[in-house]
Design a binder for these strands. Structure first.
Lengths: 116, 116
DNA sequence: CCTGCACATCGATGATTGTCAATATTCGCT
DNA sequence: AGCGAATATTGACAATCATCGATGTGCAGG
């Protein structure tokens, strides 16, 4: 034991240092990890960046395939992941699908990281 | 074409809207994705949270296995991922390995997200 | 109506990952 | 020296994922 005095803290384990504040719950960790998983891919980061840098704040798939150098189905797949994670909006006009950043979504994820 | 007037932008492609600012480079995306991949796991988020909430700002492996409910080798594996990503420090004292948060590492990752 | 275009979905495949049991390593103690 | 405890490493396995080609779906123009 590395704590000097010890008299079975909670009867579950012995080697446990007390916490100064509450840690992340399993549930909250699951939700945050899900959103971070959508962000943890170089292609998807570039897609978000390009969409955000595009004039009007939106871009269609044909604007995105060439810059990232991947096939159209693959790009569509990544965009779907980002939409499902609440990071991108999708609006269809004619044959084109326009993607735009969900306001504050990235900032919210960033905040969650700092307040771990 | 969905842009009204168009006279071969860069001779590479036709369907491309101009960008207002530069997007993330492939290299920068790779580096950021690597760090985010380390964060995109519920167990690792909880480990970071517990370490940060521990008194003295550090915790050893025996403090961590029970709260996350996983085997010791698995916890050691996750800790190694976090150290390799520059998110945790590891110092050994006696038989114990103490892990602590790398200062500003989480804040830096959060900043990178907002400035996509 | 029929053809072409933009995009989504499907099925398959190779690579990565989270997990564990078993084993190795390293340290303190007697 | 030798034992026990804390941690790291290895090998294996199932699950997830990124990617592609092929195909499906809807819309627009002639």
């Amino acid at each position: 034991m590395h704590s000097l005095e010890l008299k079975d803290v909670t009867a579950t384990d012995a080697c446990r240092a007390p916490l100064e504040r509450d840690a992340l719950s399993a549930d909250a960790a699951e939700r945050l990890a899900h959103r971070l998983k959508a962000l943890a891919d170089p292609t998807r980061l570039r897609l978000l960046s390009i969409v955000g840098a595009s004039q009007g704040g939106e871009a269609c798939v044909c604007d995105l395939t060439d810059p990232v150098g991947l096939s159209q189905p693959t790009v569509s797949h990544h965009l779907k992941v980002l939409v499902d994670a609440g990071l991108l909006n999708r609006t269809k006009r004619g044959t084109w699908a326009y993607y735009s950043l969900v306001p504050n979504a990235l900032a919210d994820a960033a905040d969650s990281l700092q307040n771990l």
